[in-house]
Amino acid sequence: MHVIHSGNVTVNTQCDYAPVTEEMGVRLPLLALLAKEPAHGYELKQALEQTFGAAYPSPNIGQIYVTLGRLEKDGLIRAVAVEQSSRPNKKVYFLTQQGREALIAWADGPLEGPRLRDEFFMKLVLAPMTGIADRGALINRQTRHFLGLMRELHHLSETTSPDDRYAHLLIEGAMLHLQADLDWLERCREELT
C-alpha cells in the first residue's frame, strides 16, 4: 500500500480507501474534545462530526466507547455516572491531569515530514536487473495509476461542499502529495529510460 505519513495523519493515496478509524485513530481527537469540556460518548461523536465535517472518516459509536474505555484504563480520562430521571445513568467523561499532559506532549511535538514508503522505488531499481520488467513500462503504469487517483481526488473535491474548508484542505494536501509523486516519476523517466 502506498501511504504517505505526516505525523499522525496519514494520507492514503491508494485506491482502497479502507475505513481505518481503528481505536488508535480516535484517541487524540477524543482527548482534545474532552480538554474543551466533559462530555458523554454520543456528544463526542457529534462533536467529531461537527469539527471535521467530511474531513473525518466518521467512527461509529461502538468504536468511540471502546476507545473511551481504553483511555480510562490508561488513566488519561475518568468517568462519572450522571443520574437521569427516566433512563439509565449516563457516563460523562473528563480529562485527567495525565491526559492533559499527553495531549500537550502530542500538540508540542514536531511531526515527521512526509515520507515515501516506496515499494515502487524498489521495483524500479531491481526489476531491470532481473529482466522481469521494463523501466519505461513500470513508470508509465505507475503514472497512469497516480493520474487515476488524482482524478478521483478531483471528483471528490467537486462533490464536497465548498463550505467544508477542512475537507478541501485535506483533499488539496493529498493532491499536492500525489503531484510530487508524479513529478518524481517524470524525473525517474528522464534519468533512467
Partner: peptide, 12 residues
C-alpha cells in the same frame, strides 16, 4: 459514496 475523510487515515 466517498468523502474527504476516506482520504486520510488517523493514527494515535
Amino acid at each position: 459514496r466517498r468523502n474527504a475523510g476516506d482520504v486520510i487515515e488517523l493514527r494515535g
